[in-house]
Nucleic acid binder design. Structure first.
Lengths: 135, 135
DNA sequence: CAGAATCCGACCTGATACTG
DNA sequence: CAGTATCAGGTCGGATTCTG
């Protein structure tokens, strides 16, 4: 039943490559949905990857990503921290120093994410080949 | 040095879990980026999964997903078709019938996507859900 | 250094109406 | 059935300015 204003997401579960869709408009806590939302973020995956090399400081991350605005970097890091994928450690030195690192949970995300990027590298180049399609 | 108007994405490549970031503001064709953009879509992964059970018709998909608008369903399917992940077959019957199916390329995407959702199911629950959800 | 707060345009999205 | 076209609201993201 559509609640008019309230928008909701498909509730997806994977069981042996089978999908069960639930349609509870009030259940927004679907882990699958949350995970997808997470990596759907434009910068999340990049940050996760950068942190896979070890803890990094704020400016370090910013410099490496380059195109990210400080707002987005902070926002993304905060979200990752909130979700428990990244830790934020503040060293109260004279110039403030903040270090971000992956949590064990965050490191588990690394693996499926790598698979996805590997897919992208292997097959991504085949995308957008309109001539190779015979409908 | 920011190039002013042109916004750009991090160009990421994975090599043995190592990341190489390139910062060419004009190269928007990064396969990794494209792949992430693809699954970052709210509905893409759901559709891919539904199609993993075999070809489905437009209304069939719509009914199963439920909360999706026609616009979004069509838009997403078009994008997937354009990227070569989905085929669109029109049967010129009396009531028009259109069938969507995964291409071989689309099926290859299924695997990493499954890994991601499996991760979500296994570890997603460990993520801290923001208690400020009332939707 | 590491942000917070603000403004503002671009884009995404859903609702609605119409079509072969 | 399977769309297309259009419009309005909301969100996202970047640039800028200010702070401890």
């Amino acid at each position: 039943m559509q609640e008019g204003t309230g928008k909701w997401y498909g509730y997806c579960m994977v069981t042996n490559k089978k999908i069960i869709l639930q349609t509870d408009p009030f259940d927004n806590n679907c882990p699958s949905r949350r995970a997808l939302d997470l990596i759907s973020d434009k910068w999340t995956s990049l940050i996760i990857y950068l942190l896979s090399d070890g803890p990094q400081r704020y400016t370090q991350l910013k410099r490496q990503i380059g195109g990210i605005s400080q707002k987005m970097l902070t926002q993304t890091l905060r979200k990752l921290e909130e979700e428990g994928l990244v830790t934020r450690t503040v060293y109260p030195t004279a110039p403030p120093s903040v270090e971000y690192a992956l949590t064990p949970l965050g490191e588990t995300l690394l693996e499926p994410l790598v698979r996805l990027l590997e897919w992208a590298q292997t097959f991504g180049l085949q995308m957008r080949s309109p001539a190779s399609e015979a409908v």
